[in-house]
């Protein structure tokens, strides 16, 4: 989980951050079930993991919609400086 964090925090573009967040999300699901096994109450934690599995991709979809609406890595103002 540390390495996707690196990609999230340092990553050159927004997309690298998205990739990192996606990876962190899938690891979070596994960690939740693991914690449930350690506490011996899997039936509780499985609900949280299920909610994650369903809702994990809404954020990614929203961000990709942003780029479909707002074309380009560049701002509207016409400054052609890449946003990092």
């Amino acid at each position: 989980m540390l390495l996707p964090t690196y990609r999230c925090l340092i990553g050159p573009t927004v997309f690298d951050r998205l990739v990192g967040v996606n990876a962190i999300g899938s690891k979070t699901i596994v960690m939740l079930i693991l914690i449930g096994l350690i506490y011996k109450r899997v039936d509780m934690f499985v609900d949280i993991a299920l909610a994650y599995a369903m809702l994990n991709f809404i954020a990614v979809l929203a961000a990709s919609r942003y780029f479909q609406k707002q074309k380009g890595l560049y701002d509207k103002t016409g400054k052609r400086t890449p946003l990092i």
Binding site: V21, M31, A63
Partner: peptide, 24 residues
């Protein structure tokens, strides 16, 4: 981060980890 969209995405990851912390 100066880019607000990146900040939003990082905030999503922050909430993932915070959820893990509460669960622990």
């Amino acid at each position: 981060t100066k880019d607000l969209l990146s900040a939003a995405i990082l905030f999503g990851a922050y909430s993932f980890l915070l959820c893990l912390l509460w669960a622990i």
